[in-house]
Computed example of a mutant assay.
Amino acid sequence: MSRWSGMPRTTRWVVRVIRPFLQVFTRRDWSGADRLPTGGYVLAPNHLSHLDPFLISHFMVDHGIAPRFLAKDTLMTLPVGGRLLRGTEQIPVYRNTEGAAESLQAAVRAVEAGQVVTIYPEGTLTRDPDAWPMSGRTGAVRVALATGRPLVPMAQWGAQEILWPYSRRLRLLPRKTVRIRIGDPVDLSDLEGRPLTEDLLHEATDRLMDTLTTMLAEVRGELPTRPRLDVRTLEPPRTTYKRLEP
Rank of each mutant, 00 (worst) to 15 (best):
Y120E: 06
P121F: 00
L22H: 05
L78A: 15
S57H: 04
E245F: 12
P195I: 09
I65K: 02
L191M: 14
R149F: 00
G139K: 02
A107P: 12
T74F: 08
K242Y: 14
L234H: 06
L84R: 10
L78W: 15
L229D: 05
D34K: 09
L151R: 01
L244H: 00
G158F: 02
V178N: 08
A131C: 09
L78Y: 14
A110I: 04
R16I: 10
W4Y: 15
R83M: 14
Q90W: 05
G81R: 08
T77W: 11
L85E: 05
D73F: 10
G136E: 01
A33Y: 10
G221W: 03
D62R: 15
V219M: 06
E161R: 12
D52Q: 13
A110Y: 00
R16V: 09
P20L: 10
T10E: 13
E98Q: 14
M76A: 14
L188W: 00
D184W: 00
T205E: 01
F69S: 04
T214M: 09
M154K: 06
I162Y: 06
T213N: 04
T197E: 07
I119H: 08
A71P: 05
P121K: 06
V61W: 09
D73Q: 15
P121W: 02
G40F: 03
N46M: 05
M60K: 02
H50E: 07
P224R: 10
D230G: 05
E222L: 15
P37A: 10
K72M: 13
R137M: 06
S57K: 05
P8W: 05
L36S: 01
V143A: 00
S189R: 08
M7T: 06
V80N: 12
I65T: 07
I65W: 08
P79R: 13
I91S: 02
R19C: 08
T240N: 15
A66L: 07
R149K: 12
E198Q: 12
D62V: 13
